[in-house]
Computed example of a mutant assay.
Amino acid sequence: MKSFLHCLIILLSLQSYSCLAQNVTSESDTTLYQVFTKDGNSYIGTIVERNEEYIVLATKSIGTITIPADQIKEINKIIGSITDSRNWPYNFQTANYFASASAYGLKKGEGFYQNTWIFFNNFSYGVTDNFSIGAGVLATFFFAAEAPVWFTARLTTPVVEDKLNVGAGGVYGTLAGETFGFLYGMSTIGSRDANLTIGAGSGFVNGDFSDLFMTFAGNLRASRNFYLLLDAYVVENTLFAFIGGRSMLGRASLEYGLLTSSEFNVAGIPILGLTLPLHKK
Rank of each mutant, 00 (worst) to 15 (best):
G63W: 03
L212C: 09
V159K: 09
D208N: 12
T188I: 08
Y227I: 03
V127H: 01
D39E: 14
T94N: 13
V159A: 11
F204M: 09
E161M: 08
T116I: 11
S223V: 04
T238M: 08
N225I: 15
L106T: 01
N91Y: 10
F92L: 06
R246C: 06
Q22K: 10
G181R: 11
L175S: 11
D208R: 12
F182E: 10
F4K: 04
L259H: 06
A200S: 07
N219T: 14
R224F: 03
C7F: 09
Y54F: 15
F131L: 15
A135M: 07
M248H: 06
M186D: 08
M214A: 13
Y90W: 12
C19D: 14
S85Q: 15
F213E: 02
G173R: 08
G109N: 01
L278Y: 06
N130L: 00
A135K: 00
L220Y: 14
L228F: 12
Y97T: 05
F131T: 04
N165T: 04
M214L: 13
V56A: 09
F4C: 02
G109Y: 00
G273Q: 01
Y90K: 08
E255W: 00
I67H: 01
Y17C: 04
I198E: 03
I118Q: 04
K60T: 12
A217M: 14
G173M: 12
F204Y: 15
T188S: 15
T174L: 13
L239R: 12
S28K: 15
R251S: 07
K280H: 08
E146F: 09
I78V: 15
G244W: 02
C19Y: 05
D231R: 13
L229F: 03
I269T: 03
L196W: 07
